Amino acid sequence: MNAQRHTPSVTEVRDAEILDAVADGIRRYGPRKLTAQDVADAAGMSRMTVYRAMGSMDNAILLALTREFTRAVARVQATLPAPGTTVSGATRLALFLGAGAREFVASELVASVRTHQPELLEPYLSGRLGRSQEVVLAAIAELRDAGIADGSIAPSAASALTLLFLLRGVALGAPLLRADGAFERTSTELTELVAAALANTADVHSAQLN
């Protein structure tokens, strides 16, 4: 039986249009220079509609970041070997973490906020487990559970939260690592270290090559 496709409501369509305008504006102007009027003009609606939907520009930026993280998680998940293949759950989890760090650094939206308004991004990532981190944490937990189910991860292995902190550490250290030309190596090492800590790494290298 085919699952019914979700038809976005008028409110969901409106909010998506606002977030599209917010994300585009951040990339073009940076978050400090972006105004509600800029967003309203780009989205083809009034400034009051933007405020009613988003509450504030800071909140609109955070919602745009959450959507960015959600989409990044989906992209990384789509690149992983399918469950049930010869690649273990432990390897799939390790690959997810390395690729997740790369996605974070590759995001123009995240980079713009980090460059122009770091005081908005840093507490969002380091001061609390906000919605963006909850999305990543849920994906890690799902992969960890799958590894436990197939026997490639011991139930006593590092928790999903610990693995999130490892991923976040590499991602937040990206400016320093990139300055030294070490980011790509560190991302690969993150994958290998997690695989080594969780399980047999025999199939990690072949999965990375495919």
Rank of each mutant, 00 (worst) to 15 (best):
M1Q: 10
M1I: 14
N2H: 14
Q4R: 15
R5Q: 15
H6F: 14
P8R: 00
S9P: 13
S9D: 11
V10G: 14
V10L: 15
R14K: 15
D15N: 15
A16N: 15
A16T: 15
I18E: 12
I18W: 12
L19T: 15
D20Q: 13
D20S: 06
A21M: 01
A23N: 08
G25P: 09
R28H: 07
P31M: 02
R32K: 10
R32M: 04
K33I: 03
T35P: 01
A36E: 09
A36Q: 05
A40V: 01
A43K: 05
A43E: 08
G44K: 10
M45A: 12
R47D: 07
A53H: 03
A53F: 02
A53T: 02
M57D: 03
M57Y: 02
N59S: 12
N59K: 13
I61Y: 01
L62A: 01
L63H: 11
L63D: 07
T70C: 05
R71W: 12
A74K: 04
V76K: 05
T79R: 02
T79H: 07
P83M: 09
G84S: 07
V87T: 15
V87M: 10
S88R: 13
S88C: 09
R92P: 03
L93Q: 05
A94T: 04
L95H: 00
G100D: 04
A101C: 14
E103H: 09
E103R: 04
A106R: 13
A106Q: 03
A106M: 01
A106E: 03
A111L: 03
R114Y: 10
T115R: 14
T115N: 02
E119I: 01
R128Q: 00
R131W: 03
R131M: 07
Q133D: 06
Q133W: 01
Q133M: 09
A138R: 11
A139E: 02
A141Y: 08
E142T: 14
E142L: 12
E142N: 11
G147M: 00
G147K: 04
G147T: 03
I148F: 07
I148K: 06
A149N: 07
A149L: 02
G151E: 04
P155F: 01
S156A: 08
A157L: 07
A160V: 03
T162D: 05
T162W: 02
L164F: 03
L166P: 00
A171E: 13
A171V: 10
G173A: 04
P175H: 06
L176M: 09
L177M: 08
L177A: 10
D180N: 11
D180K: 08
D180T: 07
A182T: 02
R185M: 10
S187Y: 04
L190A: 14
L190P: 11
T191V: 02
E192M: 08
E192L: 07
V194C: 10
V194K: 09
L198N: 06
N200W: 08
T201V: 13
Q208G: 01
